[in-house]
Structure formats: C-alpha cells, structure tokens
C-alpha cells in the first residue's frame, strides 16, 4: 500500500487484514526496488508506480504467486465494463441518454468501464446522441493533460515492460494528495489511444476545488464521495453550470466510483482549511519526461 495512504487511511489496512490480506507500506525494505528507493529517498511518501514494482517483484520471487493489477491493462478495463453495460440499461429505464459522460481517471479502469459500452454504441451508430466523454484528472498528477504520449514503464522500478501511453514519467512521485487512487504516472494504453485520437476529452482540477464539489455533493445528495470520485463530480458540476448559462437541457452522467468513509481524515483537513491545491509544475514534468526520452531515445524520438 502506498506509504502516504497507509498513513492517511489506517482503517483501510485493517479492513484488508480482516479479509485475510497482509499489508505492507511501500516503499518497503522487503524488495530490492523498495530498498533502492528507500536508499535514494528515505522520506518517500510512495506512489502507485513504486507499489506496483514491489508487488511484481514479490510475485516473481515467490512460489505459486501471481500478481493482480488494479487498472491500466486491457483485461482490467474490460472487467469494469459491467458498469457501463448496466448504465446503458438504466438510462433506458430512465428514458434518457447522456450528452456527456464524466469520470475520474487514475489508471483509467473505472472511466473506461462506464464509457466504453456507450462509446461502442456511438461508433456503431446505435447511440441516439453524439455522446461526449471527458476523463477528469488531478492537477497533482495530470498524465493526459500535462504528460506526453510515449513508451514508458508501467511501474517505477522498470520491472513492467514498456507500454505506449500518456505518462508523466515512471519515476514521478506525486504530491501527497488525498485522492490516493489517482496518483499514477501513466494511463491505460487503450484510453490513451482514444485520448490521442480525440475520442475522449480530458480536464484536470486541483484538490481544493474537488473537495468543494464533494462537500456540495454530500449536502445535496447525502453520499460522502471518495476524493477520487469528487473529481468527476466537479467536472459534472461545471458542465451543469455551463448549462445554466446557456439554458441547454443536457443530460449529464458521471461515475461516482466510491464513498469516502475511510477518507474522513482528508475531509477533516479540508474543513480546517489545511488542504493544498497541488499543481505539478511544468518544469518537473519536463525533467521527468526528458529522463525518459534519454533512456529510450529510439522509440520515443519524434
């Protein structure tokens, strides 16, 4: 578990242990890659990229052990399409159809899960509207809006092979934003391809404005959203506000990926005004991507 999340959300760890899992904060001394990172950056708050490396290394060195990835890969996105398939039927029951679909993106699996079944209808001519899709990122980790479409490792330790995707560079460690699920340097290759081709749009918001949206949502709809999901809410709210200005009666559909019951420490920080609107500086991104291009000049050359 990414170290900063392990510290911010201790009861998530307890819940995993209750289900029978062993949980280790990453970077950890258990793996070679973890030890290497701890040596270079002893204060590292961790990242999904690092945690992936450690989990894969642990798997490779253990008997009868395999690895399960939480997002990014095709099979993972496919599993998530149950979301969109149900949504299609539910929209039919509501006798409505989205003009615009929004969802947060970390690795992209939940967004793809909702969007792809609608996208399939769009490209096969079955959709009654010209549905638009917008993936919503954090400004602290703007893989699509701030990154480049390059070959990069799926993990920080360079154990996972190179995939063609929008990336900020595999050695990028995001600021300790509370939306831990979005703190990934890359983006699903299939979604990246769609973004590159202009089939989906993308936008990024900072932590404070998304928590503002989450607060509004909790007060009007009752559900306390997960900080990750709040990014989707913020985008939907902006679109709804646009409709108020133009008078358009658009149908907006967004994915509320989860609840924020384990994120109360984050909400506490928000309510006491301690949250920082992290934005990853252009320069840091450029440095990280330059390192990547220098590492693999032949495949990442223009």
């Amino acid at each position: 578990m990414v170290k900063i999340s392990y510290q911010q959300k201790p009861y998530r760890r307890t819940m995993m242990q209750l289900y029978g899992a062993d949980v280790h904060p990453s970077p950890s001394p258990r793996t070679e890659v973890g030890r290497r990172i701890l040596k270079e950056h002893p204060e590292s708050t961790g990242s999904l990229g690092i945690a992936i490396s450690e989990a894969v290394e642990e798997c490779l060195h253990s008997e009868n052990t395999k690895y399960s990835l939480g997002s990014v890969l095709n099979h993972v996105l496919m599993h998530q399409t149950v979301i969109g398939q149900e949504a299609l039927e539910q929209m039919a029951i509501a006798e409505d159809y989205p003009d615009h679909i929004f969802g947060c993106v970390g690795g992209g699996s939940s967004f793809a899960g909702l969007a792809e079944p609608f996208y399939y209808e769009k490209i096969t001519g079955k959709a009654p509207k010209d549905v638009q899709f917008t993936a919503v990122e954090s400004t602290a980790c703007p893989s699509i809006t701030g990154g480049e479409y390059l070959y990069d490792h799926g993990d920080t330790g360079r154990i996972i092979p190179l995939v063609l995707m929008y990336t900020l560079g595999h050695d990028f460690v995001p600021d300790p934003i509370h939306a831990g699920g979005l703190r990934y340097h890359g983006m699903a290759p299939s979604l990246s391809l769609m973004a590159k081709a202009g089939a989906i749009n993308s936008v990024a918001y900072n932590q404070v404005e998304t928590f503002d949206a989450a607060s509004l949502f909790a007060k009007t709809e009752g559900i306390v959203p997960a900080p990750e999901a709040a990014h989707g809410i913020k985008a939907a709210v902006d679109e709804a506000n646009r409709c108020r200005e133009t008078g358009e009666e658009k149908t907006i559909l967004f994915l509320l990926t989860g609840h924020g019951h384990f994120d109360m420490a984050s909400y506490e920080a928000y309510l006491s005004g301690k949250l920082q609107p992290y934005e990853l500086p252009r320069q840091k991104i450029q440095e990280s991507l330059t390192r990547l291009k220098n590492m693999y000049p032949t495949i990442n050359g223009e």
Binding site: G70, A236, F262
Partner: peptide, 23 residues
C-alpha cells in the same frame, strides 16, 4: 441548472468502490 444529472454509484460494493469488479 436545466441539465439532468445522473450518477452511477459503485460505492455500494463491500470495499466501497469499483475495484472488486476486477479483483
């Protein structure tokens, strides 16, 4: 807003998000 807003809610799963769909 004159817009109609819908949301698909994955937080009802035991872990509270969409993750178990693939897990």
């Amino acid at each position: 807003t004159p817009a109609r807003i819908y949301y698909k809610y994955e937080g009802v799963s035991p872990p509270g998000s969409h993750k178990p769909n693939t897990a």
